[in-house]
Amino acid sequence: MTAMENPNRLIDRQGLARLFARWRGEGRRILAPRRLADAGPVDFAEVTSPDEVSFDHVQTVQSAKSAVFPRVEELFSFRRRDNSVELRERDLEALPLTVVFGLRPCDAAAFSALGAILNWDAPDRLFSARRQRLSLVTVACTRSDEHCFCTSLGGGPGSTAGSDLLLTDLGQGGFLVETLTAGGSGLLAGAGSLPPAGAAADKAARLARVDKKFDLQRIGPALAARFDDEAFWAGQSLRCLGCGACAYVCPTCACFDIQDEGGRRLRCWDSCGFALFTLHTSGHNPRPRQSQRWRQRLMHKFSYMDERQGTLGCVGCGRCSRACPVDMSLLEHLQAVAEAKP
């Protein structure tokens, strides 16, 4: 490679504080990981300054998906008038400009999978409008835990996919800044002139180590071969309680339920893990057993989405496993799928 100026920059905590102030001045809300209480869980919340942001956690409890797919969202409102119904669409221009700061590379990658489902057969105007008004300022992983498996799915602790800016903590309050999109350049516009990153800014040396845990190529065919193996799925799901914690913390789970409330049509998070999810009006339930619902969770993420949308419904963030009240480890179950003899 010829001598070329390193396009990456350096920023310190004061620089970040200036950026936060600038973004807020532009009318953007900033969502970032914040520790709930001393030693409490870390989750995304609206913040005003980097002092409120947690940098030392491995992963937030929830993903950042609620920035584009809130747990309750009004789709439109309606009013009955004599013999007609008056519909009122949401004002897309009124949706908030948002910066999600401090999400992980796996989270940034997850937005495309989420979009692949929500925009699959018909464009989802609300999701897409929120997505267009969203910027992603990712902070690379300098720590990982046993539930992380991004590298097994093509991601990595310093992966840039999906991000507008990627920050890597270089220690002593300094961050390496990689600008990845035009939107990212725009976000930096208010930072003044940032010093170029010299050769000493060694990103790779700072990144968490996340070993590859299984061969992804084996998962699709192994799942297909196992589809009818009831004993296999029953064995995996025996301790599953059938709650929705895994789906609700997942950055790519997109199932929803529709509710009407006082003239408002609401989209609410739902989960294929619930028995009610597939219950028909007739009383018939095509997935009456928890083992079938667990199978659906894996098949959808690693087989159906691969076939239909050409993407996986998992980025290896490990949230489902951390949130599970009974330690259903997705990684462990995938390893069992990959290793099982057909």
């Binding site: 929705g244 914690a245 998070w269 989960s271």
Partner: peptide, 24 residues
């Protein structure tokens, strides 16, 4: 305000055994 309605509380409770919960 943080509740997601994931119903993990219900699922984990051995005394929440209704086959059809009121919320359903």
């Amino acid at each position: 305000s943080r509740c997601l309605k994931c119903y993990a509380c219900r699922a984990a409770c051995p005394l929440c055994y209704c086959t059809r919960c009121t919320v359903e």
